[in-house]
Design a protein around this nucleic acid. Structure first.
Length: 312
RNA sequence: CGCGGGGUAGAGCAGUAGUAGCUCGCGAGGCCCAUAACCUCGAGGUCGCCGGUGCAAAUCCGGCCCCCGCAA
């Protein structure tokens, strides 16, 4: 049984971690996850689902603000004598001196077809860019982010209506089998790592809340993709009368815009809510006014008199 | 005690002291070849809960419950 030290914080690694815990070929000797945070409306201290499942299985949890130049943590890892390190959605950069400890190296699961969409937000950016294919890559880690040699990769077709949340769950699910299969073959020496083609590399940045602010002078297809790409996080929004209006679900409209319409202007047509953008209208289907509940556009129109108002 | 908005008819909203309203939905009838369109009439609310101050409270004061935005 090979000993694995697992690094993970995000939901993405939850199911794969569960699978490794159950696996008879591997033993999780510890889980490293980000420190507990004050979270939610009342700033209550809470910890990640990864930590919860780890504690439930009586596995040691390590939480550290920083790993770089942290000799204490380095010592802990050395003492655990892991055969492998597995990193999924951890959230911090892991120093090379730690990655180099295990005999079978350190392995990362990444939600894109590397070398494309390296970086922290592959799921969102693949939808944003309108990719047709996506997938999961299992790779060896080195000093650079998402740069190491590929062990295994599996492609999936990307549905044109999927949201980031749905794709995230789908790829996470998809990772379970791929990871265990890859690890088994890797420790048996059955896989030859393939170096990434550097010339094909693209990068994603970490998304911030403000990135969800819709620019209505963009094309309708870009806005539609953005709404799906940022669902559920960071979400897309606009402002109506200085109040924040979350735009939760939209559809590309085929209605022609009059010349007098300006970008961001709301046009109520029948019981539809259309918003002017660069090359036509986006139909808003579901939205939420600050402090209010989520409503369908038809309900929203009845209560608020917004025909002709401008979203900014 | 992180900051803030809100709980009014089935739905979404307006209404800061004096007999509760709008849009939609619902019911009945009408117009029409016909209709999700239009017209007429109608049903449906103890205004989140409890207490207080007023001649009078959805509206002012206090407490409680629930929902939500920001922030993380």
């Amino acid at each position: 049984m090979k000993k694995i030290l697992f690094f993970g914080t995000g939901e993405f690694g939850l199911k794969p971690l569960k699978a490794l815990i159950k696996s008879s070929n591997f033993k999780i000797v510890g889980v490293v996850t980000n420190p507990d945070k004050e979270v939610g409306r009342h700033q209550k201290l809470s910890f990640s689902p990864i930590k919860k499942i780890t504690l439930e299985n009586n596995i040691k949890v390590f939480q550290s603000q920083k790993l770089k130049d942290n000799s204490k943590f380095l010592k802990i890892v050395r003492n655990l004598k892991p055969d492998l390190i597995v990193v999924i959605a951890y959230g911090l950069i892991i120093p090379e001196e730690i990655l180099e400890i295990p005999k079978f190296r350190s392995i990362n699961v990444h939600a894109s077809l590397l070398p494309k969409f390296r970086g922290p937000s592959p799921v969102q950016f693949q939808i944003l860019k309108g990719e047709r294919k996506t997938g999961v890559t299992i790779m060896l880690m080195d000093k650079k982010i998402d740069h190491g040699p590929i062990l295994k990769q599996k492609k999936v077709t990307l549905s044109p209506s999927i949201t980031a949340g749905e794709l995230h769950d789908k790829l996470s699910e998809f990772s379970i089998e791929l990871l265990t299969e890859t690890l088994n073959q890797w420790v048996e020496g059955e896989i030859k790592p393939q170096v990434q083609d550097r010339s094909e590399a693209t990068y994603t940045k970490i998304l911030k809340r403000e990135d969800g602010h819709i620019n209505w002078s963009k094309k309708k297809i870009d806005i539609e993709r953005m709404v799906r790409a940022f669902d559920p996080w960071p979400g897309t929004f606009s402002f109506l009368n200085k109040k924040r209006l979350k735009i939760l679900k939209v559809k590309i409209s085929n209605h022609k815009a009059k010349k007098t319409c300006q970008n961001g202007q709301i046009v109520v047509f029948s019981d539809k809510m259309l918003v002017k953008c660069k090359d036509g209208f986006i139909e808003v289907l579901k939205l939420q006014m600050e402090g209010k509940k989520v409503v369908n556009a038809s309900e929203f129109i009845r209560g608020y008199n917004v025909n002709g108002s401008i979203l900014s």
